[in-house]
């Protein structure tokens, strides 16, 4: 078996009396989509934040590319190649689509402190940005203001910005949120391909997408991973059905 790209080991986190993460252990293997599902308030977002670097776990550790990154900041983890998309689009709304994509490219390539040359004329960065936009299908929107994009297009741009990092692993927090049926279908197809470039830890409520994409699923309930397994195993797991899926899944 391959070494995991990302591994969360015995991570716990409490906010006062609330235990948001209880001894969570999970791995992200090369080439896989590992879905993290669970009811609202199960602690998915808290876990994602600890992986991305926004929150420090109380105990346990997080390893990325074989390195203990528990003490590293969000910025340092991003530079190591952790690409992230947000549940609520975190984009520069006043800027154009291309400018948002360029931001990822220049951050990732450490070219932020240049004060004179117009950044949009930087061929290398522009190529990275345009490539990412092309792959998510936003090429013809490149010069639009991001605030003028539809919700679905913003979701696509989220993914494109993360892609400009050329990440070694993706963390996607509900990329399908608010997408219509056709939107989530095309994004599903896209993520299906993307996993071959870098594995994806996918938090998602859209069960059709999860069942279509996931190699493995972990189910989080009250901060605890109650089951990890393949789609069939999870579907058949009585505990998961009771806690989350319901009987008709």
């Amino acid at each position: 078996m391959h070494d995991p790209v990302l591994s969360v080991r015995n991570v716990s986190k409490s906010f006062g009396a609330l235990k948001a993460s209880k001894d969570v252990t999970l791995d992200l293997l090369p080439g896989e989509i590992h879905a993290l599902i669970g009811p609202n308030g199960a602690g998915k977002s808290t876990l994602i934040q600890q992986i991305a670097g926004g929150l420090k776990p109380d105990s346990g550790s997080i390893h990325f590319l074989g390195r203990n990154v528990t003490g590293l900041s969000t910025v340092e983890r991003a530079r190591l190649g952790l690409g992230r998309t947000f549940q609520i689009s975190a984009l520069a709304m006043e800027d154009t689509v291309l400018q948002n994509a360029m931001l990822g490219a220049l951050g990732a390539h450490g070219r932020t402190y240049r004060f004179w040359q117009p950044v949009l004329r930087n061929r290398d960065l522009r190529e990275i940005a345009e490539q990412a936009l092309e792959r998510v299908g936003l090429t013809d929107r490149a010069d639009m203001r991001t605030s003028d994009l539809s919700h679905g297009q913003r979701r696509q741009l989220e993914v494109a910005v993360a892609m400009t990092l050329h990440p070694r692993a993706f963390i996607m927090d509900e990329p399908m949120a608010g997408l219509g049926a056709s939107g989530s279908k095309s994004l599903t197809e896209f993520l299906d391909q993307l996993r071959h470039e870098a594995p994806i830890l996918l938090v998602e409520h859209d069960m059709d997408a999860v069942f279509a994409l996931a190699d493995r699923i972990s189910v989080l309930v009250y901060g605890e991973v109650i089951a990890t397994g393949t789609v069939d195993e999870i579907r058949a797991n009585p505990e998961v059905r009771r806690a989350y899926l319901g009987d008709d899944a």
């Binding site: 969000t74 910025v75 690409g83 006043e94 990732a108």
Partner: peptide, 12 residues
């Protein structure tokens, strides 16, 4: 506009 985004692409 979006400090969290800046951080997640490696900008402080």
């Amino acid at each position: 506009q979006t400090p969290v985004r800046a951080e997640t692409v490696g900008i402080v």
